[in-house]
């Protein structure tokens, strides 16, 4: 018998046998269809609290966060690069929202397009959303925001609109289902909470392991 049949048979006979199959199948279908929400930590009184929680938690995870108007996003990027002594250049994908935000800034900021092949110092992405509970960004793969920008850039700047900051992870699952269809996801969904790090040497935390050393989040307020 194939490994597949062998494994499934062994499981089936241990968890109830064929007799219970019908009932168990119904249970599984029900759970997958309803995907019940479990326990959600923390309650929020208003949207301001959600943004505040996001900011506090993101900073706790060593991200830097700033709020600005949509017209000032490119200025914020330039300021960040200058502060860290980095060239005024960045790599972005094909995200239209992001392109619009950076339009007309070519004089102060050199923008190239496409995935990062390891030679680009700074990548800028647009997040699909964020979960305030832990200051976590949700990014999805595709030509708009190539995954390599999230990991091969030494400095990762993520732009997010304040209305996309939601309370819990579960709110993002709802959004993903609406956008991509039930039971479907983009190739990669990256939940990112802070810049990369390691504590493998004597349990000492060091920022900037294999991924970005800095994660800067720009929250667009209008």
């Amino acid at each position: 018998m194939s490994s597949r049949g062998e494994i499934l048979d062994r499981i089936r006979s241990a968890v109830g046998g064929v007799a219970t199959d019908k009932m168990r199948k119904a249970n599984v279908e029900r759970r997958l269809k309803r995907h019940p929400v479990g326990i959600l930590p923390w309650t929020y009184k208003n949207n301001d609290q959600v943004i505040t929680q996001f900011t506090v938690k993101a900073k706790k995870a060593d991200s830097t966060v700033e709020r600005c108007k949509s017209a000032d996003v490119s200025k914020a990027i330039v300021r960040f690069l200058k502060k860290h002594n980095l060239p005024a250049a960045c790599r972005i994908g094909a995200d239209r929202k992001l392109k619009n935000l950076l339009k007309g800034q070519e004089a102060v900021l050199e923008i190239t397009h496409g995935p990062n092949d390891g030679s680009q110092l700074t990548g800028v992405s647009c997040a699909l959303g964020a979960a305030a509970e832990t200051g976590t960004l949700f990014l999805v793969s595709g030509k708009d925001n190539p995954t390599t920008l999230n990991f091969l850039s030494e400095n990762h700047i993520v732009v997010i609109h304040k209305k996309d900051i939601l309370k819990h992870q579960e709110d993002l699952w709802v959004r993903l289902r609406r956008k991509y269809g039930a039971g479907k996801l983009p190739r990669t969904v990256n939940l990112i909470t802070g810049p990369s790090r390691s504590a493998d040497i004597e349990q000492t935390l060091i920022l900037g392991a294999h991924g970005p050393q800095r994660l800067h989040i720009i929250v667009v307020m209008n």
Binding site: T134, T136, G142, P146, N190, L191
Partner: peptide
Amino acid sequence: EMSVYTTLSSGPKRGDDPD
């Protein structure tokens, strides 16, 4: 509270994936 990277992978490269 959350590890830095939680990554969900569903299948290989899609049509418009640059990576």
